[in-house]
């Protein structure tokens, strides 16, 4: 079943005009911001396919900027997002993506924050506001943003993934989807896990204490909060 629940038919609540070119674009921007974990100071956005051809009329540029500012799909401030980004000193530049994209409606975002930390996301808007992230920080991993998602940067060593899943299992947290990619043997790796519940702080701290785990980031587009500690 491609559409899993009633709110993928009635919904999302969004500012117009297009569920794929506007609402989906907000979500891609928001996922990129959450992956960076802080407010970006500069963002380079490459638009592909139909995003590049029709972004202006659909406000895809405003929508991506709105997501980068932390707005939801139905935040009425999306229409003024580029001005607000300028006020906050966030430099956003748009270019036309070159080469193959993962989907006709796709964007690549490269973010940098004030401390020089970077994040990179390649995302596609696949219809009705639903998105699919195809790449994060150069790793070939997927996430939809439909579920609370944990993104773990770790060293590529035996047993790391078992430790991650053991910690989640011990806290009664179910994994709905999991993907792993590495830069090379024994180099850095990324594990992405979509969960059925929002991870709380003690769970995240337990994950960060695992040997060879470098960084743990949470992506959560829903308004649902973490269950009690």
């Amino acid at each position: 079943m491609r559409f899993k629940n009633v709110f993928s038919i009635i919904g999302p609540s969004m500012v117009g005009p297009s569920s794929s070119h506007t609402a989906g674009a907000v979500r891609i921007g928001l996922i990129a911001r959450q992956l960076l974990g802080t407010e970006p100071v500069s963002v380079k956005i490459a638009l592909y396919g139909s995003f590049a051809e029709t972004y202006w009329g659909h406000g895809t540029d405003l929508a991506l900027a709105g997501g980068l500012l932390g707005y939801a799909t139905d935040d009425s401030r999306v229409a003024e997002a580029l001005e607000e980004a300028e006020r906050r000193g966030i430099e956003i530049t748009f270019v036309k993506g070159v080469g193959l994209a993962p989907h006709p409606n796709a964007a690549k975002l490269e973010l940098k924050d004030a401390d020089g930390r970077t994040a990179q996301v390649v995302g596609a808007s696949i219809g009705g506001g639903t998105v699919m992230i195809h790449e994060m920080n150069g790793f070939d991993v997927r996430c939809s943003g439909e579920y609370p998602t944990i993104v773990v940067l770790h060293r590529d060593r035996p047993g790391v993934i078992a430790s991650l899943t053991a910690v989640l299992g011990a806290s009664d947290t179910n994994i709905g989807y999991m993907g792993v990619d590495r830069k090379g043997r024994s180099a850095e790796a990324m594990t992405v896990m979509e969960l059925d519940s929002v991870p709380n702080r003690s769970l995240l701290e337990a994950l960060r204490r695992i040997d060879d785990v470098i960084e743990v980031t949470v992506i959560n587009l829903s308004s649902r909060e973490a269950k009690d500690e």
């Binding site: 009635i10 969004m14 500012v15 117009g16 297009s18 569920s19 139905d74 009425s76 009705g128 506001g129």
Partner: peptide, 20 residues
Amino acid sequence: VNASMGRIIATPTAGSCGII
């Protein structure tokens, strides 16, 4: 309202958000 970047509910999409 949708075309002017106002807030709507996609039913099932933004393009058809007026009918319901």
